Computed example of a mutant assay.
Amino acid sequence: MSKSNQKTKPLAQNRKASHDYSIDDTIEAGLVLRGTEIKSIRRGSANLKDSYARVYQDEMYVYNMHIAPYEEGNRFNHEPLRTRKLLLHRKEINKLRSHMQEPGNAIIPLKLYIKNGVCKMLLGIATGKKKYDKREDLKKKQMKREIDRAMKEQYR
């Protein structure tokens, strides 16, 4: 299998994102990381739970992304919650900036994975959900489960 056709397994995933936001569009971005950070990410010690991305001085940064310190690291180990720069083209940054101008929109990291030996992050352009939207989604999910269960019982 060629390198470009390999499936990429997410090393970290933001599971609450689809519950709290409706994802409108996604963009893949690279990350600027230090040596101990990438080693820790490869071990699966990253957390995207409360992280978000923002444009600052014509560059994109991700905030509150927690990467646990590398156990075998020495005194040059990284800070777990430091701000990390995202690698995007100028057109993509301008597109994200225009989406951020609209009220209720946010840019949130969805997945962190390794693609062709390079660490990538999937960013979602999201709109916040109201409480009643969340309840509606839970009802739909429950109905789908019940239908699937009934279909399974029918064909046994």
Rank of each mutant, 00 (worst) to 15 (best):
S18F: 15
V118M: 14
L110Y: 01
H78W: 08
G30S: 04
E72Y: 10
R54D: 13
H78G: 05
S2C: 08
R43W: 08
D25V: 06
V62M: 12
K131C: 02
E146H: 10
A29D: 04
L96T: 01
I41W: 08
I108A: 00
M100W: 07
V118C: 12
L48G: 02
R145D: 07
Y113W: 10
T26G: 00
H19L: 14
R97W: 09
A17K: 04
R15M: 11
K120Q: 11
A12L: 01
L31I: 07
M143Q: 12
K140N: 12
N94G: 07
E59S: 14
K140R: 14
K129Y: 03
I41N: 04
L81P: 00
R82E: 08
A53L: 04
R145M: 12
K120V: 04
E79I: 10
P109Q: 07
R34I: 13
A68S: 11
D133R: 03
H19W: 15
K39T: 01
L33F: 14
S51H: 02
T8Q: 11
N5A: 14
A68Y: 05
K111F: 14
P10V: 09
V55A: 10
V118I: 14
R90D: 11
V62D: 07
E71L: 06
E153C: 13
K95L: 12
G128Q: 08
Q57H: 12
Y132T: 10
A17Q: 01
K129D: 00
V118L: 15
A150F: 15
K111V: 08
Y70Q: 05
D50S: 13
M100L: 14
Y21F: 15
C119Y: 15
L31N: 03
L81T: 06
D50Q: 11
P10M: 06
F76L: 15
Q57F: 12
P69S: 07
L31S: 05
I67L: 10
A17G: 01
E72T: 10
N105D: 00
I107P: 00
Y70M: 01
D137E: 10
I107S: 03
M60R: 04
G30H: 05
K129N: 00
K95V: 01
I27D: 03
K95E: 11
E146F: 08
G44W: 01
R54C: 09
Y70I: 00
I125D: 04
R135I: 02
M1N: 06
K139N: 03
S4D: 09
M100A: 12
V32K: 12
Q154I: 13
D24R: 13
L138P: 00
A12C: 04
A68N: 10
V55T: 05
S98L: 10
D133C: 01
N47Q: 06
V32M: 14
N47K: 11
E72F: 10
K130W: 08
Q13H: 12
K141M: 04
I114Q: 11
M1V: 13
K7F: 15
D24G: 06
R149P: 00
L88C: 08
K91P: 07
M143H: 14
P69F: 05
N14T: 07
G73V: 01
R97P: 02
K16D: 05
Y113I: 02
T36V: 05
E37P: 05
L110H: 02
I147Q: 08
Q13F: 14
Y52I: 04
A126P: 00
E72M: 09
E146T: 02
I67Q: 10
E37V: 01
E79P: 03
L31A: 03
L48I: 06
Q57D: 15
